[in-house]
């Protein structure tokens, strides 16, 4: 009886002393956000080019062979509408969203041209940004404040990075 008590006591002490170690072992792994991932799976056949900014996730989703820019509100787990952004004759290439979700930088191909655009969601307004000197944009990134963008541009057979400050 005494032996059993001592054995259980030692096991308890061991467990308590190892608890912090065991709990720190359980740290260190990322966890899939399943309820959100189910929503993402249901909304288009395939998705690419994610841009994550706290509450918002922008991606390019494929619908019946056509690609469209999508924006998800991660708080409500819903896709939000983007009036005036997607066109059936345009092919989106790269997308980036700021933290408040009101600015989306976009590269798209349309009528044989590749163009860089800034979409202001609260205004439903799409503005073209000139590449100077001329070049073909390929990949765009917007900072979380929506005040700076960087774009990968093909010029004279080389890749450059242009950094552009945006008006507020």
């Amino acid at each position: 009886m005494m032996f059993l008590f001592i054995k259980n006591f030692i096991i308890s002490i061991l467990f308590l002393s190892l608890a912090p170690v065991l709990s720190s072992c359980s740290r260190g792994s990322m966890r899939p956000i399943n309820n959100l991932n189910n929503v993402l799976l249901e909304t288009s056949l395939s998705k690419r080019d994610p841009s994550l900014s706290i509450r918002w996730l922008a991606t390019i989703g494929s619908f019946n062979g056509k690609d469209k820019v999508e924006l998800f509100d991660l708080r409500t787990r819903r896709k939000v509408s983007l009036p005036g952004l997607n066109r059936t004759d345009a092919q989106p290439i790269s997308v980036s969203v700021n933290a408040t979700g009101d600015k989306i930088a976009l590269i798209r191909q349309i009528d044989g041209q590749t163009e860089l655009l800034l979409y202001r969601r609260n205004l439903g307004f799409l503005e073209r940004i000139e590449i100077v000197p001329k070049g073909v944009p390929m990949k765009v990134t917007l900072d979380a404040r929506g005040l700076t963008l960087a774009v990968q541009v093909s010029r004279d057979g080389k890749w450059d990075i242009d950094v552009i400050r945006l008006p507020n």
Binding site: V140, D143, L149, A150, V151, Q152, I161
Partner: peptide, 16 residues
């Protein structure tokens, strides 16, 4: 030759 730009959230750093 530089590719694949990514700005930090505060716009101060750039990864390429």
């Amino acid at each position: 030759n530089q590719q694949d730009p990514s700005l930090s959230g505060n716009g101060k750093n750039l990864a390429i």
